[in-house]
């Protein structure tokens, strides 16, 4: 039997909320699929569009940017800049035909281990039927 498609997800997690929330999911021994490899960044505001395009080019099937809820940013307002920037990147990616499901953003606080788990589970679930991302992927 052919092996089930396992999407590769690159997740940019801010250090203070989302990465800490992901830590809490671990501490609470919540279970979610191992498809995500997190990259800890200082703030969701530091995620450059170049990172996102690059992850897709390198073969990511999905990219997640996750930061603190509005008002909770460790850096006061970095997540607000992220929200605007990511909205633009998302619109652009969909306009050129990337499936909208492949690029997601979430607010996950340090206390939201459960939410992080759900975000990842749902992301993997939605990516599986889409199959591998080839639209922006580097030719092999």
């Amino acid at each position: 039997m052919a092996e089930e498609f396992e999407p590769k997800i690159v997740a940019f997690l801010c250090k203070w909320c989302s990465s800490a929330g992901s830590d809490l999911a671990g501490v609470s021994r919540m279970q979610y699929p191992p498809n995500v490899v997190p990259i800890q960044v200082m703030c969701s505001g530091s995620v450059s569009p170049l990172y996102i395009f690059n992850a897709f080019k390198k073969g990511a099937d999905g990219v997640l940017v996750s930061g603190c809820h509005p008002g909770d940013c460790h850096y006061i307002e970095g997540n607000y800049y992220a929200r605007r920037r990511i909205a633009l990147v998302k619109e652009l990616l969909e306009f050129v035909g990337l499936e909208p499901e492949r690029f997601q953003m979430s607010w996950v606080s340090a206390a939201e281990g459960t939410k992080y788990t759900e975000v990842i589970k749902d992301f993997v679930d939605v990516l599986k039927p889409l199959g591998p991302q080839s639209h922006l992927r580097r030719e092999q």
């Binding site: 509005p70 307002e77 607000y80 800049y81 929200r83 605007r84 920037r85 990511i86 909205a87 633009l88 998302k90 997601q104 953003m105 979430s106 607010w107 975000v119």
Partner: peptide, 14 residues
């Protein structure tokens, strides 16, 4: 991209 408003849309964010 060097500015934001509190009410910027975020329906796309989970």
């Amino acid at each position: 991209v060097a500015s934001f408003k509190d009410e910027d849309p975020e329906e796309f964010i989970r």
